[in-house]
Design a protein around this nucleic acid. Structure first.
Length: 398
DNA sequence: CGAGATTCATGTGAAGTATACCTTTAGGCTTAA
DNA sequence: AAGCCTAAAGGTATACTTCACATGAATCTCGTA
């Protein structure tokens, strides 16, 4: 019985190089981003002469090739730097990763470990991390380029003191220099920063426009050629993927995901041809995986809160409800599960964080004499709700 | 009837607490000269 | 005497609590027309 399954994977594989469809893959040529890449290269090029490049800030909605372009330029830069024997180092950090790089301390810890210093997860004062950081950099004459991906997420959470400190770090460095490349999905992000940070961080700015459907199709074609064996992709499949993605603000990552998951579905079926219907299946599948992954990775109290929200959402039949309702249900759930109850103050914060994760939408409103509160609504696709609910109940031993 | 006061339910900020974890330090034990 | 291990002391980040104040429009109050 298993033989059959394994057989499908060994013999019948339709993929040639599946990695080409992953978001982290850097193709040899990057389509439709020539201008931006040139611009980035122009800004960073002084690094080759060991001169400090201007801090760079690039922004644009998700899946517009920001990360890809920056990483590409940097990899090329590193190659050149080796040729010229200039001591250039680069660090890439994705600040969004929950519980890895979402506080000042953790980001610094990530920076340090990228530079080869082991740092404990807790226990040290943040100041001493800065000192260590300075020490490491000062050890030898060098130029460091720090790429902070999705910084908008962190700044929203912990404020801009980290950025402020980083931009000012230069003054305490004798031998070395650092430049910062910030990447943000939010277009308005810079405006929320402290003016001092703003001026030094965005000495140079690059705006990434969304891809249109034609661009997306070019990209998909390029990747598909690399990823699949011959004659796997059926008629209209690429068009459909790009159309889907284009309708969602031209998100190339989404298009690639669609294509990849379509491929996986076909592979599992044991077929050899991707057809349009598979793209529809993939669409549903991706959404499901995304939501379930997020939910699964949440701490217990978050899950409990979410469960309470789902229950409420059912009661109110899609209508919105308020913080008090959520807390009441949550309270009941705590007693049922024997989990330690948390205060409403904290639940309020958790609701805010769930909002940031995109699982719910909230809006602070005043109901006049009814008091001020949050209007809460579940933002999970209807046919997914029960899946999420089951997952939660299971996780919480209900 | 309308302006200003009141009110409600909770947002929001600051400071404090518990927990888990880190480094340093000092004492005690072992080892080898 | 040197080397190693262990436990205690002293310190931090994080998740959460406690306390206190801020919010902002519906509703109430009361003076006025």
């Amino acid at each position: 019985m298993l033989d059959e399954i394994f057989e499908n994977f060994t013999k019948n594989t339709i993929f040639q190089n599946k990695r080409a469809l992953q978001a982290s893959y850097t193709p040899e040529t990057i389509l439709h981003r020539e201008a931006e890449i040139k611009q980035i290269a122009g800004v960073l090029a002084p690094a080759l002469r060991m001169e400090k490049p201007s801090n760079l800030f690039s922004y644009g909605v998700t899946g517009t090739g920001k990360t890809l372009s920056v990483r590409y330029v940097i990899s090329q830069l590193l190659i050149k730097a080796k040729e010229c024997n200039s001591n250039l180092k680069t660090v890439y950090i994705n600040c969004k990763l929950k519980r890895v790089a979402d506080t000042e301390y953790r980001i610094l810890a990530e920076l340090l470990s990228a530079l080869g210093r082991k740092v404990p997860v807790t226990g040290l004062p943040t100041d001493s991390l800065y000192k260590m950081f300075i020490d490491v950099i000062n050890e030898e004459e060098q130029l460091l380029i720090i790429v902070l991906d999705e910084i908008d997420q962190v700044v929203e959470k912990i404020g801009d003191s980290l950025l402020y400190n980083l931009t000012r770090l230069d003054s305490s460095l004798q031998n070395s220099q650092i430049s910062i490349v910030g990447i943000s999905n939010k277009l308005t992000f810079v405006d929320t920063l402290d003016p001092r940070v703003k001026s030094s961080l965005s000495e140079e700015e690059i705006l990434f426009h969304p891809y249109n459907a034609v661009h997306l199709k070019d990209i998909l074609e390029q990747r598909a050629k690399e990823a699949f064996k011959k004659d796997i992709v059926g008629e209209g499949v690429l068009e459909k993927c790009s159309a889907y993605a284009a309708s969602e603000h031209g998100d190339a990552r989404r298009a690639l995901d669609l294509l990849r998951v379509s491929g996986e579905i076909v592979e599992r079926e044991g077929n050899k041809k991707i057809e349009q219907k598979h793209v529809d299946l993939a669409e549903a599948r991706i959404e499901k995986d995304r939501v379930l992954d997020i939910v699964k990775s949440q701490p217990k109290q978050f899950q409990l809160t979410l469960l309470s929200i789902i229950t409420n959402s059912k009661c109110y039949n899609g209508k919105c409800f308020y913080t008090g309702d959520v807390f009441e249900k949550y309270s009941g759930l705590c007693q049922a599960t024997k989990i330690k109850e948390i205060t409403q103050r904290r639940i309020s914060d958790i609701i805010g964080e769930l909002d940031m994760l995109g699982l719910i939408t909230t809006k602070v409103i005043s109901r006049g004499r009814g008091g001020k509160t949050r209007e809460i609504r579940l933002a999970v696709n209807k046919n997914l709700i029960s899946r999420v609910e089951n997952l939660l109940s299971e996780n919480l031993n209900l």
